[in-house]
C-alpha cells in the first residue's frame, strides 16, 4: 500500500535525498526508472511514444523529457496523447543536457518525485535525455538501466566508434532500419561492430515504421521490470 501523508507524501520523515534508494519510505518498491539517451534525431522520443502506447494499458507510466532549449519533446508526446498530460514533465537543462542526466541529476530526481506524488504509485518512469554526443550516459543515481538509441542514418560506423553510450548501455537500439537501403548502411556490419563493442549486452535493430515497431524493446522493458520487482 502506498501511504499518503498530508505534508510530504512520503509517510513519516522527509523524502530520502538519494535517488538510488530502491524503496519508498513506506517499504514498497519505487518505480523502475529507465533512461533513453543517444544523438539528436535518432528516435528517442518516437521510441518513448511507442513504448507508452504499448505499455500504458498494463503499467502505470510517466515520462520525464530533458529538452535542450524547448519543450518540443514534451509537446510532441502531449500532442500525440500517448499519456495524460499530468504524467509528462519537462526538465530544463541549461545548455548542457549531459549534466542534467549525469553530473547534476537533482532536477530530474525532483521531477520523478513530483510525478510519483502527483499520479503515483508508478510502475515505470521513462527519462529521455535531450540528445547529446556519444559520451553521454545517465547516472546510476538517476536511472536503474539505460537504453542508447542510435539510427542507421547517422552513419554505420557509429557502433565501431564506440563510446560509453554504445559500449555500456544496458540496451543498444539501432533505429530506422527501414532507411538502411536509402542511406547505404550495412546492418550486418553494424551488428558485428556492436557485438564486438558490447560483448553479451543486448542490441535491438528496429524500425518504428514497420509492423513489429517497438515490440522487442517493450519485451526488454517487461523483463527489466520483472527483475526489478523480483
Amino acid at each position: 500500500m502506498h501511504l499518503h501523508h498530508p505534508h510530504d507524501g512520503h509517510g513519516h520523515g522527509a523524502p530520502a535525498p538519494s535517488g538510488a534508494a530502491a524503496r519508498r519510505p513506506d517499504g514498497t518498491r519505487r518505480a523502475l526508472r529507465l533512461g533513453l539517451g543517444g544523438p539528436v534525431g535518432s528516435g528517442k522520443t518516437a521510441t518513448v511514444a511507442a513504448l507508452c502506447r504499448e505499455l500504458r494499458s498494463e503499467l502505470s507510466l510517466a515520462v520525464v523529457t530533458n529538452d535542450i532549449y524547448t519543450r518540443e519533446d514534451a509537446e510532441f508526446l502531449l500532442r500525440e496523447a500517448v499519456l495524460p498530460p499530468e504524467r509528462i514533465t519537462a526538465v530544463e537543462t541549461g545548455a548542457c543536457p549531459h549534466t542534467a542526466i549525469r553530473d547534476d541529476i537533482s532536477a530530474n530526481l525532483e521531477a520523478v518525485e513530483d510525478l510519483e506524488d502527483a499520479v503515483g504509485p508508478l510502475d515505470l518512469v521513462l527519462l529521455e535525455s535531450g540528445g547529446d554526443n556519444l559520451t553521454a550516459t545517465f547516472s546510476r543515481g538517476l536511472v536503474d538501466a539505460q537504453i542508447f538509441v542510435i539510427d542507421v542514418a547517422g552513419g554505420d560506423d557509429i557502433p565501431r566508434k564506440g563510446g560509453p553510450g554504445v559500449t555500456t548501455a544496458d540496451l543498444l537500439v539501432v533505429n530506422k532500419t527501414d532507411l538502411a537501403p536509402y542511406v547505404g548502411s550495412d546492418l550486418d556490419r553494424m551488428a558485428a561492430d556492436a557485438k564486438a563493442q558490447r560483448g553479451h549486452l543486448p542490441v535491438v535493430f528496429q524500425s518504428l515504421r514497420e509492423e513489429a515497431g517497438v515490440d522487442r524493446v517493450a519485451a526488454w522493458v517487461r523483463e527489466r521490470l520483472a527483475a526489478w520487482r523480483a
Binding site: H7, D8, G13, A14, P17, E110
Partner: peptide, 28 residues
C-alpha cells in the same frame, strides 16, 4: 524555491544531519 529544494537534496546526502532533515520536512 526549486533551487532551494535541489540544494537541500544534495546537502542532505552530502552532510546528513537532523537539522537538514527537519528543514526538508518543513519545506517539502
Amino acid at each position: 524555491r526549486r533551487l532551494g529544494r535541489q540544494l537541500l537534496r544534495a546537502a542532505r546526502a552530502t552532510w546528513p544531519c537532523a537539522g537538514l532533515d527537519l528543514l526538508a520536512r518543513r519545506f517539502p
